[in-house]
């Protein structure tokens, strides 16, 4: 568990990178989070999360082909690594595990 700790935003970004495979880069991640989650982020925030995840080894990256709208610059495409996959699985597992342990009664909002 320790070492795979993911912050909430980190987890969100990591998931989005997985969703967008193989077209995940700064702006697409930002856009996807906005449409799917409704959270509008600044591009620099997305960048810092992405590099942090790369430093932790959950992501790796490669440069794409240059595109015209970027003034002939390449994109940095992010991909999930095995460690990233495991981190996602684990956090998912932990959540499910915890969710399943909630007593049924606690979720029944009926008048007793």
């Amino acid at each position: 568990m320790k070492g795979y700790y993911l912050g909430e935003l980190e987890e969100l970004v990591l998931l989005t990178v997985g969703v967008l495979f193989p077209e995940a880069y700064g702006i697409s991640v930002m856009d996807e989070i906005e449409t799917q989650v409704g959270r509008s982020l600044n591009i620099s925030a997305v960048h810092s999360v992405l590099t942090r995840l790369e430093d932790k080894g959950f992501l790796n990256s490669k440069m794409s082909d240059p595109t015209e709208e970027r003034g002939g610059r390449r994109k940095r495409i992010f991909l999930l690594t095995a460690a990233g996959k495991r981190a996602l699985e684990e956090s998912n597992e932990v959540r499910n595990q915890l969710y399943n342990q909630i007593p049924k009664v606690a979720l029944q909002f009926k008048l007793v």
């Binding site: 880069y25 702006i27 591009i43 595109t67 709208e69 970027r70 003034g71 390449r74 994109k75 940095r76």
Partner: peptide, 14 residues
């Protein structure tokens, strides 16, 4: 630089 500037340009164009 390339990545950051690229993103900034792309957003600008859009």
């Amino acid at each position: 630089l390339e990545e950051i500037q690229g993103d900034a340009y792309e957003l600008f164009k859009r």
